[in-house]
Computed example of a mutant assay.
Amino acid sequence: MSIAYNLEVIHQRMAEAARKSGRSADQVRLVAVSKTKPAEAIADAFRCGQQVFGENYVQELTEKAGLLGEGIRWHFIGSLQSNKVRQIAGMVELIHSVDRISLAREIDRQWGLIGKVCDVLIQVNISQEETKSGTTTADLLDLVRQVAELPHVRIKGLMTMPPFFDDPEGARPYFRELQRLAGEVAAAGIPGVEMKELSMGMSGDFEVAIEEGATLVRVGSALFGERVYR
């Protein structure tokens, strides 16, 4: 199937999931996960109307951004090392994966050097899996309070990655918990902090995520296919 066809099907599925949960389709945005995919696949999706692309690796992101030029909106969605932050300063619209204060401080420093503010999401490891990044639910509020004090970082919401399940229903409690945590953070009334975005849901479970309040779904294989695009 073509990227154009896949994109149309994904948007139809997103709209139906939103309708099912009493939400408007325009309340949910698609982040096209383009890691390992070549620049021509991204350009193809962009020509079909997809604007936001998510990358997991700094070197891959910088190389693709250099090839593709302006117009594409980049999100960084992978685990981010503090010593790589400088390379993407000012390049990305949103970082989904802030999970520690040391990383947030380096983002603040690098964006401060260019006189800009970086929008971020706080990643929460709800499943407590050792293989996944993210702050704990117990430490979330403290981390939010610390990050909120940084002048060049702006918290826009939360992100999580549930364990893998063959049945997407298995992920539902994790998505529901992120929605609950967002409410808890919002209720704390921390100045400058918004819980506008919930980044959750991937190719196998994004419809369930939308039903539980996702505003950003990170979809790769359902759009580009499992194999590298040719």
Rank of each mutant, 00 (worst) to 15 (best):
R73Q: 15
I3M: 10
E169R: 06
L181H: 03
M161S: 02
G112T: 12
L94R: 10
D139C: 00
R13E: 11
W74K: 08
G220S: 04
I101T: 05
L198T: 01
P168F: 09
Q179K: 13
D44W: 07
G49W: 05
E212Y: 01
V120F: 09
L61S: 12
T136C: 06
R86M: 06
T137K: 12
V117H: 05
D166R: 13
D99W: 03
S97E: 02
G189I: 04
G78F: 10
E149P: 00
V98W: 02
R19N: 13
T131N: 06
F224T: 01
R227L: 04
R145T: 13
G220Y: 05
L67Q: 15
V31H: 03
A65C: 12
E130R: 14
F224L: 05
R105C: 04
R145H: 08
R105H: 03
R230E: 14
V33R: 01
E197A: 00
E40G: 00
E93Q: 15
L141G: 12
V92Y: 07
P173C: 02
R218P: 01
A186F: 00
M202N: 09
P151Q: 12
Y5A: 14
G225P: 04
M159L: 10
Q50M: 06
N6A: 11
M14Q: 03
I122Y: 03
I101R: 02
V219I: 15
A17N: 06
I77Q: 10
S133I: 09
P168E: 05
F53S: 04
R227C: 10
E149M: 14
K116R: 15
K84H: 06
S2L: 04
R29L: 10
I190P: 07
L68C: 10
E70I: 08
N6K: 07
I210A: 01
N56L: 03
E60C: 08
E70Y: 00
E93D: 15
E226M: 11
T215P: 00
I42G: 04
L223C: 03
Y5K: 13
G115Y: 05
D99R: 04
R176Y: 01
A41S: 13
H75A: 11
H96P: 08
Q51A: 13
M91I: 14
I122W: 02
I190D: 09
K35R: 11
T36N: 11
L178D: 00
R180D: 08
